[in-house]
């Protein structure tokens, strides 16, 4: 397990993903799981920076034999990414709304996203399973 706490700033996605990379290397996680969580985490942290108004963010990484978990807590405005509308990827490019791609990618890259509002804190769990090898 590893924890990382930071004030909310433009550097949050870069720093959060650097901590993730160090954790993934330390635990010898397979490349597809590393990359998927790296991308999903970057999207979520960028959303926090851009939209939440949070002052502080905490990230916890946990590794199990066949899965990895990132838990991100922030004290920003309540926002449940799991409740965001699905993006319809079949609509032609000229007609499609451009927003919502970050959450769409988080959903596709992770196996499970779980949101809770606990007091004045947003808590999102991002889970990625992999084949232990």
């Amino acid at each position: 397990m590893a924890a990382f706490s930071s004030p909310n700033s433009d550097r949050l996605p870069t720093e959060g993903c650097a901590h993730w990379a160090a954790f993934a290397a330390q635990h010898h996680l397979p490349e597809p799981a590393r990359m998927a969580m790296d991308h999903a985490l970057a999207e979520h942290l960028q959303n926090i920076v851009s939209h939440s108004g949070a002052s502080r963010v905490e990230i916890l990484f946990q590794s199990a034999p066949k899965a990895v978990l990132a838990v991100v807590s922030d004290d920003g405005r309540a926002f449940d990414p799991t409740a965001a509308p699905e993006v319809d990827t079949t609509i032609p490019i000229a007609d499609r709304p451009i927003g919502g791609l970050g959450i769409h990618m988080m959903r596709r890259l992770c196996d499970r996203l779980t949101y809770q509002r606990l007091g004045d804190t947003n808590r999102l769990e991002l889970a990625k399973a992999f084949d232990a090898g």
Binding site: M35, H39, Q46, G99, L101, H104, M105
Partner: peptide, 8 residues
């Protein structure tokens, strides 16, 4: 690595 902001 290409984030959603880059795709946008």
């Amino acid at each position: 690595f290409l984030c959603s902001a880059g795709i946008r």
